[in-house]
Design a protein around this nucleic acid. Sequence first.
RNA 1: GCACGAGUGGCAGAGCAGCUAUGCAAUGGACUGCAGAUCCAUGGACCCGGGUGCAAAUCCCGGCUCGUGCUCCA
Length: 477
Amino acid sequence: MAVRLFDTRSRKKREFVTLEEGKVGLYACGITPYSPSHIGHARQAISFDIIVRWLRKRDFEVNYITNFTDVDDKIISAANKEGVDFLEISNRYIDDYFESMDALNVIRADAYPRVTETIPEIIEMVESLIEKGNAYVAEDGVYFEIDTSPDKYGQLTGQTLEMVRSGAGGRVDKTGSGKRDHRDFALWKMAKPGEPSWESPWGEGRPGWHIECSAMSLKHLGERFDIHGGGSDLIFPHHEAEIFQSECCLGHDPVVQYWIHNGMVNVDGEKMSKSLGNFWTISEALENVDPLVLRYSLINAPYRQPVDFNQVMIDDSEVHHHRLVTSYGEGLSKKGSTDWRGIQWLEEATGRFESGMDDDFNTRVALVEVQSVAKRMRVLLDSERDSEEIAGAVRWISDYAGSVLGLLPEDSELLSKIQSQEIAKDEISQHVETLLLERDEARESKDWARADEIRDELTGMGVIVEDGPNGATWRIE
RNA sequence: GCACGAGUGGCAGAGCAGCUAUGCAAUGGACUGCAGAUCCAUGGACCCGGGUGCAAAUCCCGGCUCGUGCUCCA
């Protein structure tokens, strides 16, 4: 079964064929570290994390690269505000990023190149573009000249030069004064006093925003590579600029075989933004939400769809995730885990899960399968039989919900938690049993007031009493 | 204005030509003094108008509404 993915450039799902048999070069645009990472970053990282996990599951050898734009206007202004070096700012928020991503169970990329470590390659690329006549040197910087390659315009957005010309009409950018045309974009910005800068043939300065990704992807993945991705807000102009730069510089197209973009995170139906006051950093969100629940909620829709982050959605995810994990834990501690192959209903679930994931990484479909396997396992667990099927289901959940979707805590962690709960239970067991006995007597004599009083007392101790057909059972919450 | 995407049951959200999506909620039942948990069952949907198909949430055309992009942004 082949993997299909939605390519932004051709605007349709295409069968995934790699340049080199069995190998995938994947570049995803990372963050500009000037403030704490937010939920949108989480979604981007998790989306690509799962794509990488799935391609590896499908036996591809994946080289996954994601970058840090560790020098730019916002970083510089944050540094000036605090009176510190710009690298102090970027390093701080890169640390924050890794901390958040580790919590969200995002597997590290194979490399995290930074702009400040790629300056020579960037300069080389800009030089080459000037030589080829695609770029020109102006007072305040070096610019890419769109008109040298008008046919490349709108490859990802479906717009043409004329559309943008008319659309942008009133608000032509006046800041890039050296530009010949407002649609040209900066490859190199000459340094203003006090700004971090590097020497170049055109004077002290720093790279423009777009060129870094062209240079870094070239450096790490070569002149052609399979997948380039990022958030959908980067499609224009960032990724279109990259197409101009890379293809003009290297002299062939396409450089990137497939462009993929994850959807944005909205909050209560509106775009998350600082000005609207509905902005969530990851660490803020994690104060109230378990990281794996957050992860669950963000893959509960296919990666290209927008996701609406709101209380209902979090509550739902909490219920679903909690049930998945507790079922898994119960199965694991009671029946262990064994190979599931050959168990028909699990084979069928596998088929649906895999074809969902093969179809543009549809995690929503995959999640439905996970939940239905968990549910069936719970039923089996209740019926106290079919150990082999339960153990198979445990392994299945571990393989798919765990390894592929990254939704489960470590087995050891889970088991020790269950164990410590058992111990806690043992400690108060006698006391609880005594009270329950008393309550049974009260119930026997239909003294409901006394019975409820005892139940309330137990609730106060964190003990949940549940009356069943064979008398009362209890557990610790 | 232009571009891209979306409009599905009370809610969230899949499916994208034929077969129960699913979960939460609701209702009925099992169990129940009550509550809770669990299980079983049930109802209920495809924005509007045309078109193409034996067959359309699913494809095509035209509307309407919403979101996003066109400036830095995952």
